[in-house]
Design a protein around this nucleic acid. Structure first.
Lengths: 231, 231
DNA sequence: ACCTGAACACCGTTCAAGT
DNA sequence: ACCTGAACACCGTTCAAGT
């Protein structure tokens, strides 16, 4: 007993030190193996041969751990192919996202849960959405149609179902949010779209987009598409 | 302290006895108030003025509680309107489902989680899907197109995202599953569709439907619809 | 200053003891 | 036979005590 503890300790001392990256990839591996229910701070610490509290040096809490894991997964999605038409580019990207989601079946649930909890999307997720908007823009989509398109794609973009944006309305103000000019530099397409939407609606129903309208737009697009296939 | 306990006890004795329905609606109310994280067997018992273990007389465990709650919610979706065309009928039904999902923001997450856990859909959910298929059939959709349509509608039917059916392949055999003839009687459209899909695929890639094909079908339908709206 | 064991306030569920 | 308190095996996170 004492000897084993001693051995573990020796191994521990020579092991590569903990890092945020090591914590996150171990967490992803744990969730891949046993589902998200099998992921606990305590089990994660055990896998990393570390006392539970050591994790809190690298992630603030479990929610931040989940956010970090999502970032790892979004990083697995192929970057957009640039030398084709918009449709092929979107198609390839969404299919790549789907392959990621199939590799990590717990992912869409976690992403959706974090969105439902009104957590601010991480920079990595923002960059993903920004570049997706960029594909549509490069394909000649006017801003309002891009907006609809992003809603229509909804669940296929990242596996979650509805109300993906929510525009941060009612969200707790992020203490380390980027200043607007930095936002615009980093996420040009997202910013452009957000500003267009805000301007559109502000005079009518207040800020944010009309989710009901967007839902019906997507529904009707789908139903019309099906109607065209009727014999 | 003793006096208060005595009072509580007296109230408890005259209270309407626990029932599955009372447990389920209290659980829904609790989730509506505080989200699904606020729902625990212990808190539910407390709200019902009952010892935690008393709940287990009416639901086998927490998963069965969640299934029961889903049934309550699906019961809130309007029945299909019969005296219109298929498109209007589907549209109204899906919009009714959406209103339910907006009333209970935790619902889609729970539904998706239960599906991911490969839990068999409850009879109430089966009946809902069956009658949705019935609308398409009555509208003249051939079986294969209904199949595609159900996949395309996917997230809009009940708020979850993908792989909704999974056909029970790899699912633990349900001990109290209905015999086939009873299935056919209760869910005629679902059974017809399931049999057509099974027959279609069995000779090619084994039972179940080709999820990748269905995903791409829905994706392309969406992209083609967007392309048509380009100026 | 850093690290960490014990503790706190929770879970869902089992089970034996009480009526 | 029914009901239930205590117990079990967990959680995420706080915090004070140790180095």
């Amino acid at each position: 007993m004492v000897e084993i503890t001693g051995q573990t300790d020796a191994v521990h001392r020579t092991r590569t030190p903990l890092s945020r990256a090591r914590v996150l990839s171990a967490a992803v591996a744990l969730a891949d193996e046993g589902g998200v229910d099998a992921l606990s701070m305590r089990k994660l610490a055990q896998v990393l041969d570390v006392v539970p509290m050591a994790l809190y040096k690298h992630v603030a809490n479990k929610n931040e751990l989940l956010d970090g894991m999502i970032d790892v997964l979004v990083g697995e999605i192929d970057p957009p192919v640039t030398d084709t038409d918009w449709k092929t580019a979107v198609r390839l990207r969404v299919l790549s996202a789907r392959r990621m989601l199939l590799r990590h079946p717990w992912a869409s649930g976690v992403i959706e849960a974090r969105l439902k909890a009104r957590a601010a999307p991480t920079p990595v997720v923002m960059a993903y959405l920004d570049s997706m908007i960029g594909i549509f823009r490069a394909g000649g989509f006017p801003l309002d149609l891009v907006h609809h398109a992003m809603h229509v794609m909804g669940s296929r973009l990242l596996g979650f179902s509805q109300e993906l944006f929510e525009d941060g309305a009612g969200r707790e103000p992020d203490p380390d949010a980027l200043p607007p000019e930095e936002m615009a530099a980093r996420y040009p397409h997202l910013t452009e779209l957000a500003m267009a939407v805000a301007h559109d609606e502000e005079s009518v129903v207040g800020p944010g987009c009309d989710d009901q309208y967007e839902f019906e737009f997507a529904l009707d697009l789908t139903l019309d598409g099906l109607a065209r296939l009727l014999p």
